[in-house]
Design a binder for these strands. Structure first.
Length: 808
RNA sequence: GCCGCGGUGGCGGAACUGGUAGACGCGCUGGACUUAAAAUCCAGUUGUAGCGAUACAGUGCGGGUUCGAUUCCCGCCCGCGGCACCA
């Protein structure tokens, strides 16, 4: 037992006093930038699961420091956005005050865990000196046409009363409050992230050190598909319906065309449609559905025929019916499809329900006939397809696309599932969008010299029902002169989404106080890119998509010198409650880190969380396991009390093996096995110690042990190192090297197998020959029975490891 | 439905490019110390049979490759995560 409270307090104060973790930009040394995803400071504070990733990066950073790197390992807070705003409203505090309080709580909670952050580089996204540059980047996007105003229907959360991006949805519900979203027509600012879709996709291949699951998720989210856009002329008009398909080869099987209910073409055909009231009724019906209802796969497909209008298939001149149906999404492709029921499941289902014609044109290569019971989705050979009959699907797609181009009926087209980023929120707690609406000049940017455009203090920050932000009510802030013509202008009152500030914060840590530029070029060149980024997997298709986009833009305008922000990425597994459920107030299973630290110490918590299991894996909390970690540290304390040192050869060898193992395991983020290796070493030392009544190590070697322990248990290691007489912080020391010679075992346990089954192990010299082993084996009394009445067919010998004798 | 990951004792998990399955920790059992308990220390702990040496079985299920498979291949089952009418 040792007084962890006293020791931890002492060293935390000393580290700050001696500036042990101050980042030094000594450019002669190699740099290492290791970054945690900065937290969102919520009202309830941290639970014991949050620091897991921070502990891991802290251990890693300490290793790198001691290995002689200049380490940048900063921390900050992502504080704008709905959670704080909703919390502030509920508790009747100003959002700024709520943010300040929450950050103070978080910092206190983090500080007692003994992290090696350089707090002088702290970045807070709600700080005007920070969001000045968020606004600046937005303006650069605006100036290059990447930010545009749109009036299209978007996701709207009726509870949070704001528009949302696709990334803010969780299965059709608002990710924040769980309310099903609806589509609502709204004026909004949108970023052209789709312009970067291709690059974001292709560049994933340049990231070998990202987890493949994350890359896969991003690929699916970007959702590239290659196909063609085809014009279907509408009979007796000069209108046309543009459809997108990846299966031009099936077009001779098209028996109707479907457009989304919101598609503009419906209104354009008003005069032709003879059942207009029925059509309008259907459109209204669709508008009243939530997104969730509309996209429910289990529901039956619905739709209405546009009577009086017909479309013409450009390939065969056939006249086909036109339907509106909400199984076609207006937001993807052209909002219209050619329906080929024989070769598309959805069209098949719809055609069945409405009693429409099904015409098969693709046949399996084995010439089996189409049975009409389901849609045939595979590629195959074309039939009934005019001049393209007989071609295989892939060739047909090429030739038919060429035909489209030649005859002016369409073109090749690549579509992406990812949508442009809806970037405005009708809420208060966000970065003001620095634009001014002028009657004469249109939308005019706020001059860069006037940045930051500070978020004004407002009396009521509750959201409104009318799609306007609370900022719209502050008339003396809203009404300004147009910076261009001096005439009357109005400020944009929407604010930026929560994800804006986190798109580039990693750059600001490099140069956190610069008021002239976003980041100094020279410093950026030295420190970037982020070598290693660690955080939750839930950000795979949110923050990590946005940040890559933002970064590529900054690359394009020359702010940064490389194209991908995060070289290596790992996700931290959750810590669940003792009951196996996610820690939450609702289940009453939240474990508070402050309590754990005061009761068991930060070092115990650190060791335990790293020992729980593989870093990426989620794992249930178990207080008994924590006590095990504490016991491990207690044992080390008892070693530290020894005053007699007597070097032992076996222990020295074990120490060097452990140095190797721990170094490799920290580098590879295999913390559980690193802790295990340290435990094995300690157990062996204790066993020996009990025999010889002295520490079976030299002073120097005991210090080496403390060094490899120190990333895990920094406070205790410093304390024991000081006891050994060390004057300088252990983290200023050089990481110990292992001795190759000491690791080699002179004698080894050689495995003896007979017919592949383990039968014995023999203690022999490591370089024993096959012949010698065989002689030894045959001489063993307890193995004799295997060779009686048996013939040795062959032996397999793996030097230094095993011999397998095959007998019959 | 599609994509990705996983399935090993009572529990968390270990096992390098195929080579002693269950390291390390928790829990449990027995013992020492104690008036007693906690703490600590020692021993045991995959199952079955046996006093024991030992033998057999065993890494989700069924096959296969191999001298040898938790590891590689084929076919299933189950769990988790993501996406989901994307034409």
């Amino acid at each position: 037992m040792y007084n962890h409270q006293e020791i931890e307090k002492k060293w935390q104060a000393k580290w700050i006093q001696d500036e042990v973790y101050k980042t030094k930009t000594d450019q002669s040394k190699p740099k290492y930038y290791i970054l945690d995803m900065f937290p969102y400071p919520s009202g309830v504070g941290l639970h014991v699961g949050h620091p897991k990733g921070y502990i891991a990066t802290d251990i890693f950073a300490r290793l790198k420091m001691m290995q002689g790197y200049n380490v940048l390992h900063p921390m900050g807070f992502d504080a704008f956005g709905l959670p704080t705003e909703n919390y502030a409203i509920k508790n009747k505090i100003q959002p700024q005050k709520a943010t300040d309080d929450n950050i103070a709580t978080y910092k206190k909670q983090l500080s007692i865990l003994g992290f090696c952050y350089d707090w002088q580089r702290e970045v807070i996204t709600t700080d005007p000196s920070y969001y000045k540059w968020t606004q600046w980047t937005f303006l650069q996007m605006f100036k290059r046409g990447l930010a545009y105003e749109s009036f299209e229907p978007i996701n709207w959360c009726p509870s949070c009363k704001t528009g949302l991006a696709n990334e803010d949805l969780d299965n059709g519900h608002c990710e924040r409050c769980g309310t099903p979203v609806i589509l609502k027509k709204l004026r909004q600012w949108v970023l052209r992230i789709t312009d970067y879709a291709e690059r974001m996709l292709v560049d994933l291949d340049k990231l070998p050190d990202w987890e493949s699951s994350t890359k896969e998720m991003q690929k699916n989210w970007i959702g590239r598909s290659e196909g063609a856009e085809i014009d279907f002329k509408i009979l007796e008009t000069d209108q046309k319906i543009k459809v997108f398909t990846t299966r031009v080869d099936t077009i001779f099987g098209c028996t109707y065309v479907v457009v989304a209910p919101e598609n503009k073409i419906v209104q354009a055909l008003k005069d032709k449609i003879t059942n207009l009231s029925e059509v309008n009724e259907y459109i209204e019906e669709c508008q009243n559905k939530t997104d969730l209802q509309r996209t429910d796969l289990n529901k039956e497909k619905t739709g209405v025929k546009l009577k009086g209008a017909k479309a013409i298939n450009p390939f065969n001149g056939e006249e086909v019916e036109i339907f509106i149906a909400d199984y076609v999404l207006n937001s993807y492709g052209t909002g219209a499809v050619m329906a080929v029921p024989a070769h598309d499941e959805r069209d098949f289902e719809f055609a069945h329900k409405m009693g429409l014609r099904i015409k098969a044109v693709i046949f399996a290569t084995d010439n089996s006939e189409y049975n009409g019971k389901y849609a045939f989705l595979d590629d195959g050979v074309l039939r009934n397809s005019g001049e393209f009959t007989g071609l295989d699907s892939a060739t047909a797609r090429q030739k038919m696309t060429d035909w489209l181009v030649d005859n002016n009926f369409g073109d090749k087209k690549i579509n992406y599932k990812i949508k442009d980023w809806v970037f405005s929120r009708q809420r208060y707690w966000g970065e003001p969008i620095p634009l001014i609406h002028c009657e004469n000049c249109g939308v005019v940017p706020v001059p860069e010299s006037e940045l930051p455009l500070v978020l004004p203090v407002v009396k009521s920050y509750e959201p409104s029902d009318n799609g306007e932000s609370p900022l719209a009510t502050i008339s003396d802030w809203v009404n300004v002169k147009c910076p261009k013509c001096g005439g009357a202008g109005k400020r944009e009152t929407n604010t930026m989404p929560q994800w804006a500030g986190s798109c580039w914060y990693y750059l600001r840590y490099i140069d956190p106080k610069n008021n002239e530029v976003l980041v100094n070029k020279e410093l950026e060149k030295y420190w970037s890119p982020v070598d290693f980024y660690v955080g939750g997997a839930e950000h795979a298709t949110r923050h990590l998509i946005y940040a890559r986009f933002w970064h590529k833009f900054l690359f394009d305008i020359g702010v940064v010198n490389y194209e991908e922000p995060f070289t290596k990425l790992k996700h931290v597994g959750l810590i669940m409650g003792e009951d196996g459920r996610k820690m939450s107030k609702r289940w009453g299973n939240v474990i508070n880190p402050d309590k754990i630290v005061s009761q068991f110490g930060a070092d115990s918590l650190r060791v335990y969380e790293m020992f729980m299991g593989p870093f990426e894996q989620s794992c249930a909390w178990n207080t008994n396991g924590l006590i095990g970690a504490k016991k491990f540290l207690d044992k080390i304390v008892s070693l530290g009390e020894m005053t007699e040192f007597k070097e032992d050869k076996e222990i020295k060898s074990r120490l060097h093996k452990t140095i190797k193992k721990v170094s490799e395991d920290i580098s590879g983020f295999y913390f559980n096995t690193a802790v295990s290796a340290l435990m094995i070493l300690v157990n062996e030392i204790i066993e020996k110690k009990n025999k010889i009544s002295a520490l079976p190590l030299s002073r120097e070697d005991f210090y080496k042990f403390l060094q490899i322990l120190s990333p895990f248990a920094p406070h205790l290691s410093e304390e024991l190192a000081e006891k050994l007489g060390k004057k300088e912080s252990i983290f200023a020391s050089s990481w110990p090297q292992y001795d190759e010679e000491l690791i080699k075992d002179e004698t080894i346990n050689l495995v003896v197998q007979i017919n592949g089954k383990f039968r014995a192990s023999l203690l022999v010299a490591h370089d024993i020959s096959e012949k010698e082993v065989l002689e030894l084996v045959l001489a063993q009394e307890n193995l004799k029975k295997w060779f009686e009445n048996a013939e040795i067919l062959k032996t397999i010998f793996v030097p230094g490891k095993l011999i397998n004798i095959v007998v019959k």
